[in-house]
Write a protein that binds this DNA or RNA. Sequence first.
DNA 1: TAAATTACTTTCAAAATAGAAGTAAAAATG
DNA 2: CATTTTTACTTCTATTTTGAAAGTAATTTA
Lengths: 141, 141
Amino acid sequence: MKKEFRSLCPIASTLDILGDKWSLVLIRDMLVRKKKTFKAFSASEEGIATGILASRLKLLESFGLITKRKLPDNKKENIYLLTEKGIDLAPVIVEVTLWGDKYMRVYNPKLKAYENLKTDKASIINTLQENYRQMVASVIA
Amino acid sequence: MKKEFRSLCPIASTLDILGDKWSLVLIRDMLVRKKKTFKAFSASEEGIATGILASRLKLLESFGLITKRKLPDNKKENIYLLTEKGIDLAPVIVEVTLWGDKYMRVYNPKLKAYENLKTDKASIINTLQENYRQMVASVIA
DNA sequence: TAAATTACTTTCAAAATAGAAGTAAAAATG
DNA sequence: CATTTTTACTTCTATTTTGAAAGTAATTTA
C-alpha cells in the first residue's frame, strides 16, 4: 500500500491507484449493481480471487473511495459503501462503458448492450449517483 | 497478447486491454502531447521501461487503437498514430483527468491543474480530437 | 450443539513489471 | 566514406503482482 506517484499528471496519478483490471470492476459492482459485501463482490461473473479482492478493498478504503462498516444487527458481514469520491467515478464508468460498447463488441460479440447510455449520458450519470446515495442513506439509516 | 475476456461487460472487457498503469498514459501522450515516436514515449516523465513500452504499443496496435508506419523520408523512425478508435478515448481521458484533478491532489499536492476542463468539457474534448485529426492529416499528407 | 456462512489470510506457482544492458539498422557527423 | 550517434527495439534477470486453491476464525443458522 505504497502511496508514491509517478508524476504530477492527474491521469497518471489516478492510474497509480485505479490502473488495474479490477478496481473499476469493483466500483461498477457497487455503483451499478449495488453490491455491498465481500461475498457479493466475490461472486461477480469475472471471478476475482479472494486475495486480490481483499487487497483491492483495502486500497480503495485507504484512498477514501469506499468505507467499511458493520450494521448493528450483524457482527459478521462487512458493508462496503462508496464515498462521494467513489460515487464521483460515475462519469468515468459511463465513458468506459460507452467506449467498450462501441469498440469491444468486435472482439467480444456477446457483450451486453447499453443503448440508452448514449442518448442521455448526463441524466443517467445523475440517476446512477442519486440512486446510490439513496441506497447508502437507507443502509446506514 | 491473448484476446480472451473475463465477461460480457463492456467495462470489464475494456479493462481487459486498457486496465493497467501505462496504456492510458500512452494515449494521453499521443492525444494531448502529440507524441508519435518510441523515443518520445520513452522520454515521458513517468519513465516507462522500454520493454513495457514495446509490448504496450504492440497490444494497442493489435486492438486497432494505434497504427505504426514509417514516413517516406525516414526509414528509421516509426510513427505511431491514434486511430479513430483511440481518439474516441478522449472522453475517458478527460473524465479521468477531472477526477484526478479533484481528488488526487490531497495525496500528490503538486499535481498540475486543469481548471478550464471543468467549465466546457464537451468543447475541450472536441478540440482535442479535432486537433489530433489535423495533426494526423498533416503527418501522413 | 453442529453445520454452514462470511470474511478473510496463507501458500505457492505463474505472469507481469522494472531496470539495465545489448543489438542492428539507419542517419548524422567529420 | 568512415565513424559516431540515434532510434527502436530485444534480452536478461530480479522483483512484484496475480491467480488459484486451501485454510482459518468468528458468527450465524439450523
